[in-house]
């Protein structure tokens, strides 16, 4: 039975682990982010799939991150990610710059159990030079010389996601966000928070099943209504623009960030235990 609560879910993330997180547009578990900050996890290696946003900025600001790998870290319409920007400038964290399709390619290699995936582009760039782990080979299938880049497989220890719907067997429905399927396939464990829990199996519905990550891959699920807020969740609710604009402004200073995070944790002080206690309606 993978249904659990946020504290137990977050406790499965250990110091120094490699954690894959979605971009801000689809499926970020801000509820689990609070639990990780409270737990005081350290030295995480975050992978933004393929970008990262508020979640990464908060984890960086809270001192949970050693290394981030992403094709971009930003608050999107709300501007630069302030704690990320400061941490890179001060050298507090390391970065592995990427490009969106390279992150996807690495995860596809990971889910297939092969050592790398080839991709076009990148040749001649400083981006490629900054990644000694990305290798250029001569395409062995071509008649003429054809340099091409190999992206090593990405196998995160954890995929951490938020979804609209789970069931009691631990199947989860991701809707249009099919990159979450690839993340779960490539990761060794998948930790999920969900808006709702269905009392019937999601695999029984042929309309839902093609967008389901089966429980085969799912390590634990915790109920977390509005668990992506203040970011939006596709098909469910939009971003809380006032909160994001406020964060983008105040988190530019260390003190401002500390005050913001304290208030945010306090405002959600009771969210940890309600998962298994709350009555569930499908």
């Amino acid at each position: 039975m993978p249904l659990t609560d946020l504290v137990e879910l977050a406790a499965r993330v250990g110091h120094g682990q490699c954690v894959a997180i979605p971009s801000d547009v689809g499926g970020v578990s801000m509820a689990a982010t609070r639990a990780l900050v409270r737990q005081g996890v350290r030295d995480l290696h975050l992978i933004g799939v393929p970008t990262a946003g508020l979640q990464a900025d908060i984890l960086i600001g809270a001192g949970c991150v050693r290394l981030i790998e992403a094709s971009a870290v930003s608050l999107g319409e709300w501007g630069l990610a302030p704690r990320f920007t400061e941490a890179i400038r001060s050298g507090a964290i390391q970065i592995r710059d990427a490009t969106c399709p390279a992150v996807h390619a690495g995860l596809v290699a990971g889910e297939k159990g092969v050592p790398f995936m080839a991709m076009r582009g990148l040749i001649g760039s400083d981006l490629l030079r900054s990644r000694p782990d990305w290798k250029v080979i001569d395409n062995p299938c071509a008649d003429m010389a054809d340099p091409i880049v190999l992206i090593p497989a990405i196998r995160p220890e954890v995929a951490l996601i938020h979804v609209p719907l789970a069931d009691r067997e631990g199947n989860i429905w991701v809707g249009m966000r099919r990159e979450l399927l690839v993340m779960a396939h490539a990761a060794r464990t998948t930790l999920v928070t969900a808006e709702r829990v269905s009392e019937t199996s999601l695999l029984d519905d042929p309309c839902l099943a093609p967008a389901v990550i089966p429980s085969l891959y799912v390590t634990a699920v915790a109920l977390a209504p509005r668990g992506a807020a203040p970011i939006g969740l596709y098909g469910e609710y939009g971003a809380d623009e006032a909160v994001l604009a406020d964060y983008a402004r105040v988190a530019r200073s260390r003190d401002g960030f500390d005050r913001w995070i304290e208030a945010w944790l306090a405002a959600n002080a009771c969210d940890d235990r309600r998962a298994v206690l709350a009555p569930i309606d499908g």
Partner: peptide, 9 residues
């Protein structure tokens, strides 16, 4: 700045 996004491909 944020990073290269999809420009690398």
């Amino acid at each position: 700045y944020p990073g290269s996004f999809g420009s690398g491909l």
